[in-house]
């Protein structure tokens, strides 16, 4: 078991081991939805929520069901279906009982099923031997880190759209990947600070 307390892990997952900028997971929704900062933030909040909950759920299923039955090698497929089912149920619940929240998160939830950062967080927590509490901290932290990254790039892209003139080939995903690379360099500078595994 990794000796690191939950709050530290939470902050480490945001700054020193950002899942998007150091592990490059969840890049496709990140590029597609970062055109403006509002949708970027909406998607980010949804990712935090789903990542925290699915990390906990998958932790329970892995250690309570898969390990006793010696079925650890099925973790991929099980994690994916758990995430998909969870997202589906959450969407229905929010749609029904929290219309205001559905306004903000609703349309982003289905996108999250295929966000590989979510699966990534679940797999990392197994590889790194986190406890349930650590996993939730890590999930919440990774989600927050993902939100931070996408809002950063969303803000930069909005600014570029208003002021900058780009060569045609660089518009959209092109410039986004370059910005991501620069952001990533900045974030990896912190990477040795906290050891998370």
């Amino acid at each position: 078991m990794t000796q690191i307390d939950m709050p530290t892990l939470f902050f480490a997952a945001i700054f020193t081991n950002n899942i998007l900028l150091t592990n490059f997971l969840g890049l496709c929704p990140y590029i597609a939805i970062s055109k403006n900062i509002n949708s970027a933030a909406g998607l980010g909040v949804a990712v935090i929520f789903v990542m925290t909950c699915t990390a906990a759920l998958n932790h329970l299923i892995y250690y309570q069901v898969l390990v006793p039955l010696h079925l650890e090698h099925f973790q991929f497929i099980i994690f994916i279906v758990v995430i998909a089912a969870f997202v589906q149920v959450v969407e229905m619940t929010i749609d029904r009982y929290f219309p205001a929240l559905y306004q903000v998160l609703g349309i982003f939830l289905p996108l999250i099923t295929v966000n590989c950062a979510i699966l990534g967080a679940s797999l990392f927590m197994i590889i790194r031997d986190y406890t349930l509490l650590q996993s939730m901290g890590y999930g919440a932290g990774s989600g927050t880190g993902w939100l931070l990254a996408i809002t950063l790039v969303g803000a930069i892209r909005e600014k570029i759209q208003k002021t900058g003139k780009l060569p045609k080939g660089l518009e959209g995903p092109g410039i986004t990947l370059i910005i991501t690379g620069l952001l990533s360099l900045a974030f990896t500078a912190f990477s040795g600070l906290i050891k998370i595994q």
Binding site: I61, V65, L66, L69, H70, L71, F74, I77, I78, V81, V82, A85, Q88, V89, M92, T93, D95, R96, Y97
Partner: peptide, 25 residues
């Protein structure tokens, strides 16, 4: 055992979604 476990977990999840569909949605 593997097949059975995967099948039952998937079935359980499908059941949850169905129930949610019937009651929540």
């Amino acid at each position: 055992i593997g097949l059975l476990a995967i099948a039952s977990i998937s079935a359980a999840l499908a059941l949850i979604i169905e129930l949610a569909g019937a009651y929540i949605a």
